[in-house]
């Protein structure tokens, strides 16, 4: 698969990453190389093979339904650049 400039721009926009024109043209090559490298896997016949989801055969760890976390609003907002009354304050977003 070949990644063109529009695709790079689209991915960057979706990821909220600002890229310059120079970076975008370099990224075209890099992303194309990565995808082509991964595409080699297409040569393997995987018909009827279950997708591997873990390298160790184990069941999903589960929690019991009990409250044993939270209650630390001070800590949660401690790193917020702007906060008020234990709220995160962010630039106004209105729909």
């Amino acid at each position: 698969m070949h990644v063109d400039n529009d695709t790079v721009r689209k991915i960057a926009r979706l990821a909220r990453v600002r890229v310059t024109d120079d970076e975008a043209s370099a990224l075209q090559g890099e992303l194309t190389n990565i995808l082509q490298w991964v595409e080699q896997l297409d040569e393997v016949n995987t018909d009827g093979v279950e997708p591997m989801t873990s390298v160790v055969a184990m069941d999903t760890p589960e929690r019991v339904d009990e409250v044993n976390d939270g209650g630390m609003a001070d800590t949660i907002v401690a790193n917020a650049p702007v906060r008020e009354d234990h709220y995160f304050a962010v630039p106004k977003v209105v729909e």
């Binding site: 339904d65 009990e66 044993n68 939270g70 009354d85 234990h86």
Partner: peptide, 20 residues
């Protein structure tokens, strides 16, 4: 009682960010 992936409470109307 607790959230889908954490042990914080789900109760309605708590003080801001106190159940996080």
């Amino acid at each position: 009682c607790s959230k889908l992936f954490s042990g914080a409470a789900t109760e309605f109307g708590a003080a801001p960010n106190s159940q996080v």
